[in-house]
């Protein structure tokens, strides 16, 4: 339900995309197909041989097709150690 994302409006959320990226930001808008608008977005880049790198993205719009998960998170529990990036989800070409 779109309303289940709505309740995070104005809050910090984490979006995991189907290509395995994790993008954190404050939710400013969303719709029924999970398009999301994030403010002060930053991508947390995980790699095998380096600790997490954070890249500032600013205002960011993610098209719903590419969304895998949307979640709220506990800032205290973020892990900054090196880790393999999440696997991607291959999308069918229409």
């Amino acid at each position: 339900m779109a309303s289940s994302i709505q309740e995070w409006k104005g809050k910090a959320i984490c979006v995991v995309t189907s290509d395995g990226r994790t993008i954190m930001g404050d939710l400013v808008g969303n719709d029924q197909v999970q398009n999301v608008i994030l403010e002060d977005a930053q991508e947390r880049i995980y790699s095998n041989d380096a600790p997490v790198e954070t890249v500032e993205l600013g205002l960011y719009v993610i098209r719903g097709d590419n969304v895998c998960m949307i979640a709220d998170y506990d800032k205290e529990k973020l892990v900054d150690t090196a880790a393999p990036p999440l696997p991607t989800i291959l999308q069918q070409q229409h």
């Binding site: 289940s4 994302i5 984490c14 995991v16 189907s18 994790t22 999970q34 947390r44 995980y46 719903g64 969304v67 895998c68 998960m69 949307i70 979640a71 709220d72 998170y73 506990d74 800032k75 205290e76 529990k77 973020l78 892990v79 150690t81 880790a83 393999p84 999440l86 989800i89």
Partner: peptide, 25 residues
């Protein structure tokens, strides 16, 4: 209150609490 089953493999997901999952994935 989601928990990742393999937290050592997916540390990027351990901080997540409540989670919306898109049906297509």
């Amino acid at each position: 209150n989601v928990k990742v089953v393999n937290p050592d493999k997916y540390p990027q997901l351990v901080a997540l609490q409540n989670c919306f999952v898109r049906g297509s994935v």
